[in-house]
Nucleic acid binder design. Structure first.
Lengths: 329, 329
DNA sequence: TTGTAGGCGTTATCAC
DNA sequence: GTGATAACGCCTACAA
């Protein structure tokens, strides 16, 4: 492997001149530049990043923390992060925490060891005090899920407003008995969407019944179980707002099995616009987040932080209501 | 950030002794070791990996190349790779190629730049001559999809045998009109599974009809279209072997829409045992590959290569037939 | 515009 | 068993 010195010899200049050519900084005559470029080509020289990184004391690696990559929710966000990172010469290491604190800590070690420069956190489970601790020592931004008190910049959507719109849509197709399947309210998104649900009911003077609100895990089986529970009630809802598409799809499947027709008997609206929401029969009406952009913005934000830019404003992106078969009139 | 030198001063020894303590090599008195350990704790010292990597001329990073991470097929494999890598102090960078040669090349640059030590390739699209080129300069192993001529070690399953078993299962439940939905036969798995299909038919003296074999893209819509095509035939199959679960699920959905009952009218068997295959109604009979293990083995293989171990044997792992509702008698 | 030389934080060789 | 010290390959004052 040729080094910068080999190139210098070949080009009959000093290593400083070669370095200046490579990094395109400092003043430099055309003559030198050209002869260096030729030497580089001739020798097939590629700078050794291990050396550069040591010298510059950076790794050009960004950590993207998320619960797990098989959740389709994250696919486009990751894409946005990666595309943005690569453009600026950063590499991404995806860190699946599986919501285990131990894993998380092992990833933070990469920062201490200088193997990573900063973190984009998408894991909602992280302990706040831990996060705060990290944020004092290393560049970090929050993506999607965030904590407001933390004073760590975030990019997210207006969950409350989005939920509000979902409910108004159900109302607009004539539904007034609206149930809500939520997940764990330790998650900010769950709390915020619930607020939107409540607000919309109240603003439209629609009856709130506590037995129509259920908290479950974000999976298929729970959705099906919850649906059966709704059926067992004396007063049954005629619309369901599911806090995620996974849940919405589970509900729709359970309805099919129980020969309840969607949307006639029960309208269903989800959240996230995951690919499966289109596949479902009927297809799921849902709220679409600008995933790719969320990823881009989060990454840009972190890169600004890495450049020592202080005072970075939070970013709240717009969502879109996508009306499909599960909420036709 | 304290350096090894700070530790040395604190412990009143030389940096060499500190280094020996950290890396646990060379001879060393208990007294030195203990005082170094105390100094490390006291100063909160963490070795700078950028420096170590430069010195050792390695990055401890492994590249995992795959078409894209949202394909659930890869989830467990990746997990296996990561778990194995971390155990040996390696980090994984997931490289989504989106089957673009340009992307691939940019990832190979990481090798040239010394930012990565080796590659686990899962992308079936890669150009063989390109792959060969890489393999001459850098450690690489093939995972799942492979090319036999290449003399690059691989870990995979016996696709032909697995397909053979799938067909025999269909025969065992009394089906003799067996169609086959395959993907692009540039993929080795597609070619091998087709061989298994043909072999099983011929061994069991079952009629082969070329109009019962269709090549399509590996997605939902194509599966549905193909199913309709089968229905349009004069002589319709009463069983379908889909080369992937995605296709099998698409077929089952199309059947439901056409009011054709599965498995009574048409039995369906898939391949891969992706999570959705359980969710489907009826659930899909399928061939399960030991994904997690495939990942582990591929990673172990690469690590052996990184240790200069030559002459590494290929590894072929066993599959499992999982019988579910879509092929009941 | 160009070159010399010191240093980034390790590891590893070689004396002692 | 221990300590000096020379690399690893690059960047960047500083001087010329």
């Amino acid at each position: 492997m040729p080094t910068i010195e080999d190139v210098a010899k070949e080009a009959k200049v000093s290593v400083a001149t070669v370095s200046r050519t490579i990094n395109n900084n400092g003043s430099l005559s055309d003559k030198s530049r050209i002869s260096v470029e030729n030497a580089i080509k001739k020798l097939n020289y590629v700078p050794n990043m291990l050396a550069r990184n040591l010298r510059r004391s950076e790794s050009r690696v960004i950590l993207a923390l998320l619960p797990n990559i098989s959740n389709p929710f994250y696919a486009s966000i990751i894409q946005g992060i990666e595309d943005t990172a690569i453009k600026d010469g950063y590499n991404i290491i995806l860190c699946q925490t599986h919501s285990s604190l131990e894993r998380e800590k092992s990833y933070f070690n990469l920062l201490k060891q200088k193997l990573a420069d900063g973190i984009i956190n998408m894991d909602p489970i992280i302990d706040n005090s831990f996060l705060l601790d990290i944020s004092e020592k290393y560049p970090i931004v929050q993506c999607c899920e965030y904590s407001d008190e933390l004073n760590i910049p975030y990019v997210a959507i207006d969950n409350k407003g989005a939920a509000y719109r979902a409910i108004e849509h159900l109302i607009s197709i004539g539904r007034k008995s609206i149930a809500f399947i939520n997940t764990d309210e330790r998650f900010m998104y769950a709390r915020q969407r619930k607020e939107g649900y409540l607000q919309a009911l109240s603003d439209n003077r629609i009856e709130f019944r506590s037995e129509w609100v259920v908290n479950t895990n974000d999976d298929f089986e729970c959705a099906q179980r919850t649906f059966k529970y709704f059926l067992s009630l004396n007063k049954k809802p005629n619309a369901i707002f599911a806090v995620s598409d996974i849940l919405a799809i589970g509900v729709i499947k359970a309805a099919a099995e129980a020969s309840i027709s969607v949307p006639e008997d029960i309208a269903v609206i989800g959240f996230d616009n995951i690919p499966d929401s289109k596949m479902c029969t009927p297809a799921v009406t849902t709220i679409s987040q600008p995933m790719y952009n969320i990823g881009c913005e989060a990454c840009k934000m972190l890169i600004r932080k890495l450049m020592q830019d202080e005072n970075i404003p939070n970013k709240v992106l717009e969502v879109e209501l996508i009306i499909r078969g599960s909420t036709l009139k």
